[in-house]
Write a protein that binds this DNA or RNA. Sequence first.
DNA 1: GAGTTTGAAACT
DNA 2: CAGTTTCAAACTC
Length: 908
Amino acid sequence: MDSPKLSESPIPSSSAPASTTTSSPPVQESPFSNYISSLSPIKHDKAPHVAQGFLGLNSPPLVFTSPRISTLGRPPSSSVEVHQNGQVDKKRTHESCILERSVTELQEGLVIDIKNEDDNKENVSVQPSSSSGFVDEYLADLVEADCANSAYVVNSNLKQSNNVLQSSVNGFTDSKNIKVGNKNNVGKEVEAAQLLSGQSEESIERKLTSDGKSLKIENEQGAAQGLSDEFQKFESDTFDISAKEKECENLGPQKVVEDHGDGCNDFLQQLPGSLQGVQSYEDFAENVGGDVDVPIHSMTHDLEASELQRGMSRRCLQFGEAQPQARANCTVSTNPAADTIISSTSLATTSEAEGFDSSHLDLSVTSRTRQSVNLPQLPINMIPQCYGEKSSLTVPKPSGIGLHLNSIVNAIPIAQVGSASMKLAQAIKSTCQSTENMDSCSDAFEKVSAPPQDVTLEVKVNTVADSAVSESLSAMESTECDMTLNDFLLPIWTINSLCFYRKKLSNSTDGEGCKRCNCKKTKCLKLYCDCFAAGVYCTEPCSCQGCFNRPECADTVLETRKQIESRNPLAFAPKIVQPFTEEDGNWKTPSSARHKRGCNCKRSMCLKKYCECYQANVGCSIGCRCEGCKNVYGKKEDYCVTEEMFNRSGGERLESRVTALTPLTPSFQSSVHGNKTSISRLLSRRCLPSPESDLTILSYSKSPRSPRTSDSNDMCLETSKEKLDIESYCEGISYNSVVALADEFHQTPLPNHPSIAMGSSSSKARELTNLSRFQLDHRSGSLTSGGSLHWHSPPITPMSPLDENKNLQGLDPADGGLFDILEDDMPEILKDTSMAIMPVKAVSPNGKRVSPPHNLHQLGSSSSGPLRSGRKFILKAVPSFPPLTPCIDSKSSSTQGRNDLQENRSNE
DNA sequence: GAGTTTGAAACT
DNA sequence: CAGTTTCAAACTC
């Protein structure tokens, strides 16, 4: 599914605007099919407009797009026109999406009046060129929002705004004049939910005023709409959107909107705020409550805002994975129409949430039925992570597996912004990508969303977008790089890119400040150019010569991008994929991000930034052609070994597998990062057999899940793969992690962890191994034999066998000790790793390994221990490992572990 | 800051 | 697809 080909297929279709829209299958189509259809990231590329072009760029994300898009029906984001039917031309640009929405609404006979009461009450007319004024305004609103895309869209859209808006909505005769009125007692609220729901009761009037130049959208309060009181009053911004409606093909009943050309795109771009916002809002509401009919209080400040929303929607596409999940988790209204709408909205919502998180934008989402809906915090949570960083610049988290993910991955670790929620979201995305994992996704999503319910999501659809964009832009400019809206070429692309770019900046700069390209010959129109590759325009900080990667040359840029994408649809896709990430409470699983294509290092041994893997702080994998890989984040050999083990794990004895692994597990000298990386990789192996294959993620659904959830029997039944994984994981932890920890913290050896204190050298590792064996034997007793398994936990948690509780406690983050160290000094990633490790070692929440009764008395014997029992025990215990399960609750876990152990024994 | 090294990107 | 060239970043001095 990730394969570019899939994505490409959509592209062609996209080129033919009319093709898919009408034929959209019924909403009920299986999520999988939808998902598959929506997978192709490339779709967007072909979008005629710049935005589309960027969408195309975004296409990579699409690869990762969560099924949700398809499921939901329409991906608000870029070209994806996923509808309920699920089969929508991916070419659809945001505009198309918007059009679809509008069409749908129209079809439903809903008229939306959106009145935007702006504090300023200024009608903003969208103008073709990037209006600095608008931008400035938005900037003024600074919020860390991932609005880069939207901002970009705004600019580009504005430029194109002169174009007549053409809506190709069937039966959408009124489309020309769309008046969106936000009726907000509270503020600017857009009631679109009803439209979506098809409820005519809510009189939402959309007037598309095709002055030919400006589309004016007014938000009228739809108090009746059931706007929740909770919602804050938003400043109603009246924005005039001037656009000429261009005739667009009538959308099929499915609300499919086809792009009929720039005009449509323009229209969409201009409209985004109102419709998208509404829809997104609705989606969000649905996600939350699953009710389709949700009065949305959207405040549209400007077209920009709308576009911002659009951009957000696009982001959502990128986040598609998460969204789908979120959606899945949230009971979506059965109403097909609602679903479709929701789907689109959900995306938007997600993006919005992100914007909110990062920025503090007030997104108050009000649903009629559920006024105070616990907004799906998933999106929100996810959002913050992206923006959490110091830098004000909010980079939309790359939703897509591809670019976005990469960006995210990179950005997060580096930026240290990565929050658990974000990782979780990513993980969810990954998981969700596989249709098979929907359940898992849902679960994960729930976890994510579960969070702060107190936080009432306040969505100001329009406002949010605007603010987000503004803030993001402003943040970028002020904080990081003096970036302007111009920097954002395309919404999606920009978003993804921003993440990546941001990361890159942070990496490259390392305090130096914004470092940008220095192209001499390529005119910044090739992937050599980091800016171009990142989807951003070159700016002052750049020392490029003859640069064409500037807003003035947007056309050229887009064209070039298209060319590049034509050669390689994934050229702009994220290079780094984060297969799985899960966070829950204290527990964090290390990110298993990897370079999608892998490096090709010959001399740098993957120890320098020449290596893309290293540069991205990810380990090398099978996909790498590197020679003499010594990537501290994970050696290719390790990856290969683990994978190999994994492949033959089925039925193979644990010991043999372990043995095989042991020799292979290399990196004793690996740094902490390396450890973490290794671990993560090991953990993720299952998910990502090959760097290229995103599908592998699917398999993750199970393994990632916490074993706890499964019955003991299930655990016993766990496939050898899981076992292997666990083993690998243990290994990675024991050797790499432990050693790394030792290296990293050798200066501060843990009191009770002599092994850790030991040097990082291989000999040390060996010692640790021995020690671990010893301890392990004591603990489990059964694991003896030279098998490498034993040492897994011991090295890490040298606690005395007798005092397991102490060990656990010591390990317990709350207690401080190693955890404290990790927390304090360790990098985010490392922390994650450590976290993962910790449970395995000492904490073993399940306590299975930690305290086998009969083993305890055998403390002294290294060789003792019935392998059989031990082995079984281990296997069972493995699944229950915290790594897979986010939360580490020493007590509960330990208790449960014991229970599990007992169960295992009984089973035996 | 100049020069070298490196590996990705682009080209053939 | 493989080999070569080009390119800009990373690195070294």
